[in-house]
Design a protein around this nucleic acid. Structure first.
Lengths: 197, 197
DNA sequence: CTACAAATCGAGGACACCCTCGGGTTCGTG
DNA sequence: CACGAACCCGAGGGTGTCCTCGATTTGTAG
């Protein structure tokens, strides 16, 4: 609960800020596996200083993405506010994947299974809670097929992450087309029993 | 055209065989980025010998996967032989993804954009030709939505590759469920105009 | 069996990235 | 201003992988 355990020294706070900005840029450009040295260099700071502030790569991830993922709360709220539950559901999907498409690093992060105890996992849990409500509402409206589960949304996130990654350079909007096909398969009237494949 | 440019010496032929087998195993277990040293060790051969036979990683890929992907010809034939074009189309999809799910290395290979001049790309071209016919037939039967293109199959391959990769350890059949949703979206009667997202 | 070409071996240089630690620098308080 | 604590620096040791090359072994043709 105590928000600020230590009142960082002025230069330290400045460097921390520069590191976070640099990390966001580098992760965005090169993905989550970018060398930490690149981040230090872009921040104009030594590698030692980087480690002083963020002892692990995960520390960066935890410091950057939860903030960025907070947008998701807003998106979820808007989706739930939409009088049409189905339209809200689809808008939620589009919102998630737009986020992924805009940030190579976030896309990487969402494409993986998280370390169980990360900050990021917690934020995703909150996102999942929202998703659950949105899914439930869309199902009850009779527009979303009844057998769609939260875990299917996870799988869909994985799936789209790869489409986004591979098409980013040549056709940045290709994922929308792909999503359109999937969405058509999620309508209640399109549903066929699963398990015949 | 000349099939055998050089009549390899007996021991060399043996080692080549061992290397190929080892590479197939290692790629299958650890994915396409596995260290070449692992392959040499599993083959019981020195790293120098490995490089003598296969100067690049791509050389391994070209030597292994085309052969493995030849199954696809058979699958495509069966799909075209099916009197029901739609069922053939779906069977073709299931065939592709089953291949990917069975071989971590192949899954990796298909998840990426290929170097343009690789053997693998050529085999995939042949696969694409088959796919084109299967898609055409399914469209003409009126069961497959008219706006589905070959390039959408590529995207679908990317998408499924990530689902397969992430769920392989915990739920090896999860991709079937995911595919079922997509397939329902590919039916002609499920189609809604693309571009409203 | 001999001799030569073909093939093998594995030590080791190159590189990229990780992370630490001791010594120098800067902040900010008294 | 002066001093201690906080902070920054970057050389360098560790690790893992790539790839080469000269010395050695092995297959086989004659």
């Amino acid at each position: 609960m105590a928000a600020e355990p230590k009142p960082l020294r002025a230069d330290a706070a400045r460097n921390r800020r520069k590191l976070l900005d640099a990390a966001a840029e580098v992760f965005g450009d090169r993905g989550l596996d970018a060398p930490l040295e690149h981040i230090a260099r872009r921040a104009g700071v030594s590698i030692g200083t980087l480690y002083a502030h963020f002892p692990t790569r995960q520390a960066f991830v935890d410091a950057i993405f939860p903030e960025r993922l907070a947008v998701l709360d807003r998106i979820a709220d808007e989706s739930l506010a939409d009088p049409d539950p189905w339209r809200g559901f689809v808008a939620f999907l589009v919102g998630i994947f737009t986020l992924q498409a805009e940030d190579h690093g976030l896309n990487d992060a969402l494409a993986r299974r998280f370390p169980q105890a990360s900050e990021l996992a917690e934020v995703c849990q909150r996102g999942a809670d929202h998703a659950e409500r949105i899914i439930k509402r869309a199902k009850e409206s009779g527009r979303l097929r009844a057998d769609f589960e939260l875990s299917d949304l996870t799988a869909l996130t994985w799936a789209m992450s790869q489409v986004i990654r591979e098409s980013a350079a040549t056709a940045p909007d290709a994922w929308r087309r792909c999503l359109a096909f999937v969405v058509d398969g999620l309508r209640a009237e399109a549903a066929h029993p699963i398990g015949e494949l």
